Each structure stands twice: as C-alpha cells, then as structure tokens.
Amino acid sequence: MTAEKTNHFTNASTRADNNLTKKRVLVTGAAGFLGSHLCDKFINEGYHVIGMDNLITGDLKNIEHLFPLPNFEFYHHDVSKFIHIPGELDYILHFASPASPIDYLKIPIQTLKVGSLGTHNCLGLAKAKNARIIIASTSEIYGDPLVHPQTEEYWGNVNPIGPRGVYDEAKRFQEAITMAYHTFHGVETRIVRIFNTYGPKMRLNDGRALPAFIGQALRGEDLTVFGDGSQTRSFCYVDDLVDGIYRLLLSDYAFPVNIGNPDEISLLDFAKEILTLTDATVKIAYKPLPKDDPKQRQPDISKAKEILGWSPKVNRAEGLKKTYEYFKGLPKEELFKLPKEF
C-alpha cells in the first residue's frame, strides 16, 4: 500500500498486544453473524473482548468457542436499555440489530429501538468512557437507489412508511445521531455502510438470498427468485468485510465509508451459480417482487481504497465454496429449522 492510501490507517502501532495492558473492546450483537466474526478478529488481534447480545436473533453457538478464554466475557443484555460496563473501554462496535427482512418485518418495534435507543445508549457509553465507537450502518440507507453505483454522498431513495422503513430509517437515524455526538460532544465516531455480506455462521433461514438459495438446494427444493431476477446484488465475503471494519475503526476518518464487494450480479444469475455450486437438480421458481425491494446494489468503494487502503480479496467463487462447505457440515435438523419465532 502506498503512503497516500495508508495515511488514515495505522495498524502495527495500534495492535493491542504491543501494549502492556490489553485494550478493551465492546461488541454489541456479538452472537450474530457479523458480531461473532468481529469477536474472533479482535481476540486474534490481542484485545480483551466484551460481547453483548440479547439473543433475539443471535446464537450463542457462534461464540461458544470463546467462552473459555480469559480475554473474553459475555453480557446477556438488550442495548436498548441502559448499558453499564465496569472499567475502561477503548473501542465500541455497535452491531446489534436484526439485519434480514424475515426478522425486522416480524419485530419492527425492536428494530427501530435498537437503531435509536440502542445507538443512543452506545454513544452515551462511548462519551462516558472516552472510547472510540464504530456504528454498523447499511447499504439499505440508499433504499431503491436512483444513483448507481452508490457513493457515500448519495442521500438515498427510501420509503419511510413502507415495510422496509423500520430498518432503513432506523439506520438513517443511527447515522444522524452518531454524527451529532461527533460534532456536538466530540466523540470519536466511525460509520461503516455494509453491503451484502456472506460466509460461515449465517442462518440458513434468515431470508437473505444466499442462505435461502443454498438451503433450498440442500433440501432439494426449487430456488425462489423474486420478480424476474434482474435485480442486482454485490456480495462481499465476511473476512474481507471484517478487515475493512477493523481498518475503518483504527482510521481517523469520521464520515460514512462503504465496505462491500463491487462485483455486481443479478439474482437470477446468482441462483444459477448456486445450482452449479451445489450440483442440485432443482429448478428456479419465480414469485412476485416484495414491496420496495431494491433493484440495484453496488458499492462505490473509492473512499475505502483511498482512505483505508482496503479492497476485497476473496472472489465470489472462492467465498461461495467456503460458505457452502460450512452449510453442508451443519446438522441435518438445521436444514429444516423454521425461522425464529419472536
């Protein structure tokens, strides 16, 4: 990486294991897909990790391997309520939130609360502890975009009262209050806008395209494509995403940054890739397109490249193979497990 690309990001000097005392990091949503991978990352980097999750969508199986470690602790707690963490904190990663339509359409109030009250509580904790905080935003703040690919300067095209509004607007408010804490209180804040991500520890029944397609293929069911399948997504492997989040947290850049893989593909072509990958003999079944479903998703990652020296390394073929092997290794009952009831 050139000096120009790394002037916002310092790695070696900030590694926790270079200090006499381990730096302490709080990860909310720790038992979820991304949260659990972030716990692994910070443990591997030598931090003391405090995981927090109310387990409404998370699963302790994702982090149970960390429980014996002396530098990991877990709080079963809802961040929408007051948060107390004894001792010092260096970093907070706020990743608590339902992230799939099947979840946030069933628990809309909780989704709004974790994005508003939960974010407020995390920012208040960051202020009290003089900690740096990174907020997990999403490409959904762009809504059904009129600009393609999506840059951080685009304000979005969101229906605030549509079925997806509870998630989209929670995230948009989350960004607004985060910037308010940064400008008014001087809190060190970072905002990551996450595009479609996949990898091990995803739930097969969470309603998102990749686990849905693989789950259907493994069960011998037809793959469900909504609309004509021309809508596009850009899938980023979880290891790449976690590296981008880590770099952004340790940078000095306070404004939103897109982290995702710009390799765009239509959902119909993606379903065909899954059929080839799984060697399934099932067909593709078409269903009506859900209301406000985004027609295009592709991140412009120019800022991530320039500011963080980051770009994705894992191509889709490699990432899909790893993810498929993970799903194939799950107990058979997981394949037929119904979506979580709330």
Rank of each mutant, 00 (worst) to 15 (best):
S97D: 02
P98M: 00
P108T: 02
H76D: 07
G87M: 04
L66P: 12
H94E: 03
D103A: 14
L69K: 03
Q110L: 13
Y104K: 02
E64H: 06
P70R: 10
P86R: 09
I92Q: 00
I63F: 08
A99Y: 14
F67I: 15
Y104Q: 08
P108R: 01
T111F: 08
D78K: 07
E64D: 15
A99R: 08
L105D: 02
A96G: 11
I107A: 14
Y104D: 11
L69S: 07
N71G: 06
P101K: 12
L93F: 15
H94R: 02
L66S: 09
Y104I: 11
Y104P: 00
G87Q: 04
Q110I: 01
Y75E: 03
L69G: 05
S97M: 10
P70H: 11
I63M: 09
P70T: 12
L105W: 02
H76R: 12
D90R: 11
G87V: 05
D78G: 00
I85S: 11
V79F: 13
I92L: 04
F95C: 05
F72S: 02
H76N: 14
F74H: 05
P108I: 01
E88Q: 13
E73I: 00
Q110Y: 15
I83N: 04
V114H: 00
L66I: 14
Y104V: 08
L93R: 02
